[in-house]
């Protein structure tokens, strides 16, 4: 009997709370069912393409055979991970991923912010929209075409870059076959392709800054440069932090297609990243379990990075993703 210690008295209250919570959920569903229907395709997409495949992650710990299937393949523990970390190919891919990600972040993260700040300073509307269109355009072009443009531009025979160099008496450089040139070309290409489109987020944040802050600053005597540093940037700082956290979370997700399209065996030394390593091991060599182990490692690192960046942001500013 629970009556003596008071539990009996608590039970109806708990039941009431649970019932009322259920009622609230049912009420919500009844009231806003149209919104939930709109949400459904996204939930289905998430489940089918992101959650269901997680079931297959277990092959990273199994000696996977496509004939036995995921469930019946024998467990082998961390064997694939041991092989992975003793593989020179994977360690090279990891080093390259970190290097490319680091420089992409250091150089690529500020570019859209600078672009947005510059767009914000353009007073002529027509000029502004033309400039924006030109900068956004590469985002809408297929990576294959972008890679084609880059390959053509850096071609040793007819590329515009080598042609320009020849005007100064410099011999043609085989840019895309030289490991030391791969990273600058790749990082430059991805920035060119995405910086404009990424600047939209910052432009939206800038548009949210109250115009009276600028008017007040004008009366106080601030120049446009001072207003940018003392008003615009501090006011969009929460957005910058959120975007930085997201960017850090995706740090190891180096633009896989672009690398596949631009690299070649002669540049593997600096170009081969974890994703291309997984692609080669998994799809080309048929080592699905080994590739899954590499992919899982990638995901765990990305998860740790997001948690870490979010914790730092929460500690040092009032902004965080959750």
């Amino acid at each position: 009997m629970n009556g003596a210690d008071g539990h009996k008295a608590d039970t109806p209250k708990v039941a009431y709370t649970q019932r009322s919570r259920m009622n609230r959920i049912v009420d919500h569903l009844k009231r806003d069912w149209q919104l939930y229907v709109l949400l459904l395709p996204t939930i289905i997409w998430l489940v089918v393409f992101l959650y269901k495949p997680m079931y297959g992650l277990q092959i990273a710990f199994k000696d996977y055979s496509i004939f036995k299937g995921v469930a019946n393949s024998p467990w082998i523990g961390f064997e694939h991970f041991e092989t992975l970390f003793s593989s020179e190919g994977f360690m090279r891919a990891l080093r390259n991923t970190i290097a490319i990600s680091f420089w992409s972040l250091v150089i690529g993260f500020p570019v859209p912010i600078i672009l947005a700040l510059m767009f914000n300073e353009i007073l002529n509307r027509r000029y502004k929209s033309t400039a924006q269109t030109i900068v956004y355009l590469p985002h809408f072009i297929s990576s294959v075409i972008i890679a084609g443009i880059v390959i053509t531009a850096f071609s040793p025979s007819a590329g515009i870059v080598n042609t320009a160099l020849s005007w100064f008496g410099i011999d043609p450089i085989y840019f895309l076959t030289r490991p030391d040139w791969f990273r600058p070309i790749f990082i430059g290409t991805t920035i060119w392709q995405e910086a404009g489109f990424q600047s939209i987020v910052y432009l939206a944040a800038i548009a949210g800054v109250s115009p009276t802050l600028y008017e007040s600053a004008v009366v106080d005597g601030a120049s446009r440069w001072q207003m940018m540093w003392k008003i615009t940037i501090p006011c969009i700082l929460p957005t910058l932090i959120i975007m930085l956290i997201i960017r850090i979370g995706n740090m190891l997700e180096v633009s896989f297609e672009m690398i596949i399209l631009l690299y070649q065996p002669s540049t593997y030394e600096t170009a081969d990243v974890v994703n291309t390593f997984i692609y080669r091991q998994g799809l080309q060599n048929g080592q699905y379990d080994f590739a899954a182990a590499a992919g899982l490692f990638n995901a765990v690192v990305a998860f740790v990075l997001v948690i870490g960046a979010n914790s730092i942001a929460k500690r040092y500013s009032r902004t965080s993703l959750w």
Partner: peptide, 19 residues
Amino acid sequence: PKDRDVAMVFQNYALYPHL
């Protein structure tokens, strides 16, 4: 405006949120 030696108080205060 800066050379007019005027100061203005706005309806929505126009305070800098980060300061």
